[in-house]
Amino acid sequence: MIGNDIVDLRKAALESNWQRKGYLTKICTFNEQQLILEAPSPVVMLWLIWTMKEAACKIVQRKTGIRSYVPLSFNCETVQTDSSAAFGKINYLGEVFQIRSEIKKTFIHSIAVSAPEDFEHLQLHYLPRSAAYKEEFNNLSKFYLLAGTPSGLPELTHQLTGQKHAVSISHHGDYLAVVYSDSLLLTD
């Protein structure tokens, strides 16, 4: 399975006051708080770690079908960054997820998978945020058809094989990301 999460940094700056009393301690472990406060740009590190946690959370929710708001249970074990990318690991109750992230001036985007080799056949498309993003994706895609299930989950079908592929969609502010795998199926 795949999970992904995107944060529009301009919107986040308007919506969230992360320096508010109690904010960091409710969503970040002690180690994560230290990483954030010691980073050259604390706000970038915060949203990087947040998108890592959320990306892993989406896999867990999809697997279990259970939603709960437990950011402290998604523990960022390692994160290595340069100015434009990052990779790390999120541990959820002993289960480890591999994370890759892109750090842009205007947004941060993270992808979570279960095993490092799952990254190999991943496709990532950034689309303009609009109500018609599925049509937009389908116009661009040669083989895949993106649709939604009645319960609101995305569903990606390869039109030649009829197989359903692993897919994850995230959006925030001006940005929308579709991540899918050419090899992983929905049931993987």
């Binding site: 944060v7 986040a12 919506e15 969230s16 006051n17 508010r20 009393k21 109690g22 904010y23 409710k26 969503i27 947040w50 959320e54 708001y69 950011p71 609101g152 925030h172």
Partner: peptide, 16 residues
């Protein structure tokens, strides 16, 4: 999240 479309990073603000 589903109905009010509140961002998950703002749920903690509601809690606070």
């Amino acid at each position: 999240i589903k109905d009010l479309k509140i961002n998950s990073a703002n749920l903690v603000d509601i809690v606070l």
